[in-house]
Design a protein around this nucleic acid. Sequence first.
DNA 1: AAGTTTATCGTAAGCGCTTACGAATATCGT
DNA 2: ACGATATTCGTAAGCGCTTACGATAAACTT
Lengths: 346, 346
Amino acid sequence: MKPSLQMIAERAGVSTATVSRALNDRAGVNPETREHILQIAREMGYTPSMAARGLATSRTHNIGFITYKYHPQPITSYHVEIAQGIDDEAQQRGYHVITRFVDNAMMLDGQRLALITEQRIDGLILVGPALSPAFIIELYNSGVPLVLVDNMLQETKIDAIVCDNADGTYQITQHLIQSHGLRRLAFFSGPAHWFSSRERRSGYERALHEIGEAPRLVFMDETTVSTGYAAMLSALEQYPDLQGVVAVNDATALGAIRACKEQGRRVPQDIAVVGFDNVAWGPLHEPPLTTVGMFKHEIGVQAARRLIDVIERGATSTYQLRLGVELIVRESCGCPPSERDPLGAS
Amino acid sequence: MKPSLQMIAERAGVSTATVSRALNDRAGVNPETREHILQIAREMGYTPSMAARGLATSRTHNIGFITYKYHPQPITSYHVEIAQGIDDEAQQRGYHVITRFVDNAMMLDGQRLALITEQRIDGLILVGPALSPAFIIELYNSGVPLVLVDNMLQETKIDAIVCDNADGTYQITQHLIQSHGLRRLAFFSGPAHWFSSRERRSGYERALHEIGEAPRLVFMDETTVSTGYAAMLSALEQYPDLQGVVAVNDATALGAIRACKEQGRRVPQDIAVVGFDNVAWGPLHEPPLTTVGMFKHEIGVQAARRLIDVIERGATSTYQLRLGVELIVRESCGCPPSERDPLGAS
DNA sequence: AAGTTTATCGTAAGCGCTTACGAATATCGT
DNA sequence: ACGATATTCGTAAGCGCTTACGATAAACTT
């Protein structure tokens, strides 16, 4: 029989109210009796029933982690790392995370998430640029605390944690320009309505603008290996004198490189290709991928931290955090092999 | 104000008991009143509060998904695909999944999971071979329904969903033997106490035994790119006449290939290397990786299905399901390039 | 010393649901 | 037509916790 507040109260010779106060560190209980109660609770191995506490307080100590159900599977461990960051912070603060993958059908026509209507969660973290704005806004309007990750709805005032996408592409484009003397560079962009695509594109454009070069854009409706492959074929045709490609992410960069190889263009000698995300297999690829890394674990931690803060203390103003990124130079940009970390992190 | 059972009862002019019965499809309510009640519930957009229901029934409709917090990040999307399978099945049956990453510290000395003591979940799915048997057994003894994935405790009678590891390595080893005429093959094994390592090793050994060849084993204490790399160096030294390597998973296969390249051994011409897992970047590697694929999504679905069955109907006998695997022939075994699916799935 | 504040703790209601039990009514047998 | 059985539904208790409120006692005031 699992010990209840009731049982502890009897054993300690006090009322359940006092036990509750003692256990929750609330004022109004004598230090001695408090200690006594805690002692007994410890002995009996007491842990509160979250259902009961939730019913009484209408707080669950659960947070939702919503992400898009990519199909096919993306090639990255992106979500896992963010999820770990979230879980680390959540665990530390006594929360638990419920994961839900949503697809397009579920985002349609006001499908309220069961998570919300059943009051299973105190707040939600929405990850990725593929979640539709309509869906996000509807969740927002339902009143649950919300934090966006890797996405931002500019018009609204929804909290968001993103990495500095523009700075990332700016840095990596500059690297191609300054370290390798390349000028005729294309950008392979994802859907224009994706936040990260837009931002990454802007960083690339700024770098090109600074040297007075016209941007060369290729748009893809997804950001996978195959769309990267197709984009490269189209780019080679459209811009015969192309010197390099800044891809919106690593998966498309990889597809692009594959296309180059098949077309007899050597990477990086004939054409440089760089990505964004720093996926785990980047160092193992041939050539090893030059890319921009984001601190995924940290992003998760920050998202959870903000969400829990809002849940517990309420929100005053909007919180939109932009975390820095790191340029990761390997060989696909034209740099020589490096000694350090030839196998990557894992 | 969120509609409650109470409010529906008033509107319908019946008691809450009747509403509850109607909503839960229980017997003892007139078809007409039932329809009337359902109608009103629909109009008011009613969804039950899980906290209240949970308190009354001591069932949460939450299941836990516990996995090891690998560090560094593994190079595979393994967990994500399984998680999606689990979530798909869970969602369909009205369950939600709480994910928790555990590390060695948390598995130590009888740390009861808060998930259990706080009664947040009705059952648990434990994924991966890295969770310690002591930890698993303790959870098991606490009485929560349990399903193991990619792991199995032979002595106990804990439910498990695994893939046919032995058959996988048997098939792939046979492929090296029969299609490529190789005989002097090594197996790179993970920790011997890992279930999947043991099984995979046994398939390899069976294939070698059939041709009367002695097994060549190299043990690694982890199964990462770097341990694969180190294992290859050691194998080349130990077995100068080595013709091929069956690696316990793709990450180690990749590390092994990297080592070969650095040692001036061509893969697959001088030495064949094959893996297990069919990670997403396999087709993009040079050479494209020959490997064994498991149906990760299906594994997740089956695990969730079994778990929920046990939760709802109780367990009679042990359920240990072994799902088939598929041999995926690419080029690292020595086969010629294939036309189909050059970019892989994504 | 009487009134005022403060600390401690119990009483009891309530969170939103489920469910045993019994009452009322309807259906069936003969 | 009368008792026996089945169906429908309300009453009320209870799940394990929190919390407003009030009672009591202790510690201050001037």
